[in-house]
């Protein structure tokens, strides 16, 4: 049974939607399972790519906090991807060249919101929230993937990350708005696309109707995950395509076919910069 203090996120809801068993293994059994869904040199390249994304996020956070940024040109950077270490410098330059004048003036980098979702809670961690009193509230998400899916507005609008972020902002945005709620119509999510300089922004708005629909969908998922008990009530997915990029697939006796690196698996992972060291206090 799911712990009463469990906080849902786009990742955990996405896991449940893709495969209830994966959700069970990851969040209820908390099963550390070191299998990899990619192997060989691909794994190294993938890891390096995620690390570069994480580094870009750190530099951008410093930028918004007014901490002098590094001089990337003089730095050794994570390599291992077809000499693509230069990507980081290119992304950074593109970021510096981007006009952020459209964004509301108050900029809150790396902000977490926890929104009520029925009896449960939902966490959203924004790369940046730009907000103006009684005006717009814009979530900005830095995307370093080169997947063309990023350019498909309809697909990005449907994406679980989009739905979770906008719902969380409309539900819990009061926490960073002086206690005043932020109506859905004022909520926006802008994806900044580091690999698409011709079209650096993908902008998605929000409405009351979408908010209600998101609430219904997210709540249904969270309640469904919460009321199940025991491994048997978390069956394996029927859609074995999800197994291709799942570490647990051998445990579940699934093959899943060859795994490609999908856009969903190509997200910058901040934990890559944070979870390498031993905490002697722990």
């Amino acid at each position: 049974m799911l712990d009463a203090a469990f906080v849902f996120s786009q990742q955990s809801l996405g896991d449940f939607e893709a495969c209830p068993r994966r959700f069970y293994l990851r969040y209820i059994a908390r099963l550390a399972w070191p299998a990899s869904w990619i192997s060989g040199p691909d794994a190294a390249r993938h890891q390096a790519r995620l690390r570069r994304g994480a580094l870009l996020h750190r530099w951008i956070e410093r930028h918004w906090l007014g901490i002098p940024a590094q001089a990337p040109a003089s730095q050794p950077l994570p390599d291992g991807d077809d000499g693509a270490a230069d990507n980081l410098r290119i992304w950074w330059q593109r970021f510096l060249d981007t006009d952020f004048g459209d964004l509301p003036a108050q900029r809150l980098p790396e902000l977490s919101l926890v929104a009520a979702l029925g009896r449960r809670r939902l966490l959203a961690r924004f790369d940046l929230l730009a907000i103006e009193t009684a005006g717009r509230a814009v979530i900005v998400d830095w995307k370093t993937s080169a997947s063309p899916t990023l350019l498909d507005t309809a697909s990005m609008r449907r994406r679980l990350q989009t739905r979770v972020y906008l719902y969380a902002l409309a539900t819990a945005g009061a926490a960073c708005n002086g206690g005043l709620p932020i109506e859905p119509a004022r909520c926006h999510l802008w994806y900044w696309l580091a690999n698409f300089p011709e079209q650096p922004w993908l902008r998605i708005g929000y409405s009351d109707a979408e908010y209600r629909a998101d609430y219904d969908r997210l709540l249904a998922l969270a309640e469904d995950a919460s009321r199940r008990a025991g491994e048997r009530e978390f069956p394996l997915t029927d859609d074995e395509r999800h197994c291709a990029s799942c570490a647990y697939r051998a445990l579940c006796r699934r093959t899943g076919g060859p795994a490609g690196i999908s856009f969903e698996n190509d997200e910058a992972d901040q934990s890559l910069l944070e979870d390498e060291a031993f905490d002697p206090e722990d």
Binding site: E61, R62, L65, V114, R121, T171, A172, E281, D282
Partner: peptide, 22 residues
């Protein structure tokens, strides 16, 4: 219930985050 998330740290995790940032 709508709210954000407080910063919950050990001194080490806090120092690590802030040293990296600054």
């Amino acid at each position: 219930r709508p709210r954000g998330e407080p910063d919950i740290h050990t001194i080490y995790s806090l120092a690590r985050q802030h040293v990296s940032l600054f």
